[in-house]
């Protein structure tokens, strides 16, 4: 079997997820390179290529001028994988969608509002077909390896459809709600190993909603644990701004 050629691309993002993808032991990296050829990866190599089988795309699409580039990538690639929250679910880039683009331009660049092109932030799947997502802010490196491996083998990407609570309970973490902390874990896709609640924080929702979440109940519970509804909205907003089932007013 010839090794599939893999190329990394980025749009609006911090490129941190690409760095995470490299955060492997030497042995893991060699094993990975035994099954794929990396032909373009700005963070790691200087080569560029117009020919690849798998495109791994980080970042949201926030400029209309990015669309042709993304479409070209899609056309070339057999498989397109979204890397990180920005490309999978828009993530924090969706915060701008709560404001009119014009307003934003004036606010950020009051001297030259039109010098910098920007539009509503979109996830990659709003523009082109996506074959697999590796969500997270940042991604989980082991999940990245697993998804790439599964796709190379012709399997489903196999990322969890269950919520963070499953992983948190398996680790026997005390539920952060017992400490008065409001966590989105019950409605957020697992795969992170519940790392934030485990370390005493809370789930921000960076991996996006599980399929079919009970958001009404989630809000009621957060409120029952003494969080006012407007703060609940803010908590959802950080990573889940794109979800119209939560935010009807988002662009």
């Amino acid at each position: 079997m010839p090794k599939p050629k893999v190329a990394f691309f980025d749009f609006t993002c911090c490129e941190g997820c690409q760095l995470c993808a490299l955060d492997l032991t030497a042995e893991q990296l060699l094993d990975l390179l035994a099954v794929i050829d990396i032909v373009e990866f700005r963070e790691a190599i200087s080569e560029k290529s117009d020919s690849f089988d798998i495109a791994i795309v980080e970042g949201s699409i926030t400029r209309d001028s990015d669309i042709p580039r993304l479409e070209k990538i899609r056309k070339t690639a057999n498989l397109l994988i979204c890397l990180g929250s920005c490309s999978c679910i828009v993530g924090i880039n969706a915060l701008k969608n709560f404001q009119k683009t014009e307003e934003l331009q004036n606010e950020v660049y009051p001297d030259a509002p039109h010098r910098y092109e920007t539009s509503v932030a979109r996830a990659v799947d709003e523009i082109v077909k996506v074959d697999a997502i590796i969500p997270g802010c940042p991604i989980n490196t082991l999940e990245f390896v697993k998804v790439v491996k599964n796709l190379v083998l012709g399997k489903d990407p196999d990322i969890p459809t269950y919520p963070v609570c499953i992983e948190c309970k398996k680790k026997e973490n005390i539920c952060v709600y017992e400490k008065g902390i409001h966590c989105l874990g019950p409605v957020i896709r697992a795969g992170c190993g519940a790392i934030c609640p485990e370390k005493g924080g809370y789930c921000f929702g960076c991996r996006g909603l599980v399929p079919d979440p009970n958001l009404d109940s989630m809000r009621e519970i957060m409120n029952k644990y003494n969080m006012p509804y407007d703060q609940i909205d803010d908590r959802f907003k950080l990573f889940l701004g794109r979800n119209k089932e939560i935010f009807q007013d988002v662009q």
């Binding site: 094993d31 491996k149 083998l153 196999d158 919520p163 009970n214 109940s217 989630m218």
Partner: peptide, 30 residues
Amino acid sequence: AKRCLSCGSCIMVCPTCYCFDVADELALNL
């Protein structure tokens, strides 16, 4: 059902739940 989050926590902690999933994992070296 209106309240239930379907989070599965009840099952993780249950001492008598024994349903399981089966999956194949190939090492990275294939």
